[in-house]
Design a protein around this nucleic acid. Sequence first.
DNA 1: CCCCCCCC
Length: 483
Amino acid sequence: MGDKFQLIHDVSPGTTGWTVKVVVAEKFSPRVAQRSPTKYQNLILMDSEGSTVQATLYGQNITAFQDELLLGKSYLISNAFVKETNAEYKAKSRKIQWTISGRTRIRRVEENNSNILISTYSFTDFEDLPKYMDSNVDISIIGMIIDIKPRRIIQTRFGKECQVQDLVLVNKRFDTVLLTMWEAFVDNECKYICQNLKKKLVLIGKHLKVTSFNGLSISTKADSSFFIDGEFELVEEFKSWGHTNSEIIDNMISEKHYLTSTPSKLFSKLSVPTDEKDFTEIKNIQGLKTVKQFFWIKGRASVKVLNQTYWYMSCNNCNKISSENYGDIYPCVFCKCTDAKAIPRAKVYMQLTDPTGYINATAIGNPAEYFLQSNAEILMNQTLIPTAASMRLSMDEDEIFYVKAITQELSPDCKFEILFIVNPSQIAGDKNKGKAPVEHIGEPIKFLEPTTKRSLFHSDTDDAQSSKKKCDKSTIEIRKKNQ
DNA sequence: CCCCCCCC
């Protein structure tokens, strides 16, 4: 790439007669400036030496150039307006900013520079993901898409409706992780993925975050971006891996009940703090809005109100409450799934205490089942007020809780929800290892039932092989379009 | 200009 052309470093404000060959390394979604109605879109361009520059499009240029500057493609660019970046606006301490407008000369270069691009990514191993849970640390991941769940609509606490869709990714060690795609990513990436399910798709995601939702999952942010590679054209190492392990992958794709019965190791690992100061004392969060949203507590749970309902009927797609009978198929008003199934879900309202105080908290799903040492179906069929013989009502020793504080709009205090319960005996002996990954009781990843009518992938190996050969244009780039 | 957002 690039002999007779300049490099990004060669171009300063005032430089004339330059041409730089670049790859579009990142393409953010267009946004509206906060203090003015101006629309802008940022790109990160990279030259052959891996140097990058921030380029910005404004106003109508955004739509005009949307098919011109494609993620992962190479271009010769000259006559962009070059200026010092306003210190206030500079992204990741880049000093120079190019403005792309109608007078900027852009010529497409038909060469594949995706290797340069990929080499600049720093992918997070799936097993390191727990370290970043709820931290908002920016991560990149690479994995093969083995499943896509039905789209669902969610109602946020702030009265907004959003669409989300979950993907299941597998890495080269066959660990799986859930990736939740939000809003425009559902319309673009997920739609593309659904249309290309017959191909084996490798997904490369940038600017993602790790959340504690659904046990542990990855989620998109506003500026996330994806490369989706069909049939391993982009990532050579996945190609050999994919061919060697073709049968295992096909099996994971088709035999979803295998995955259900053997949840990934990833989901049984959590980074529990080992330093006492990383635990929150209950007195510091009692009866007021807390600053932090997530925290670790070492304490004990007990049921104080015996006469409560320890389960609710839920939608198997979105977990929202349902008025249907167990097992009935119905259209869910919440997620808009037309064939949702009513299934019981455990819940318990409890008190969490430590030596400094107490809070009331709810546990739903797996942590509730773990605490009560029961399961949703048993809880549903239980008619009498429970006794210590029928379920666990209090803990004999301290356990570790990962708690989420949900601030209430009207109330001055928080609602607390227990997301994970970890038994400390599982981290004993790991004290000097820093953040210790341990077994935890959280929400397992849920796969589609094997009986589902949604046969999303072809399980037939022969067919998978033939579609591999037929695939001509397999390296694609897709991006969030204008919102 | 960078954020957020999902079960009772």
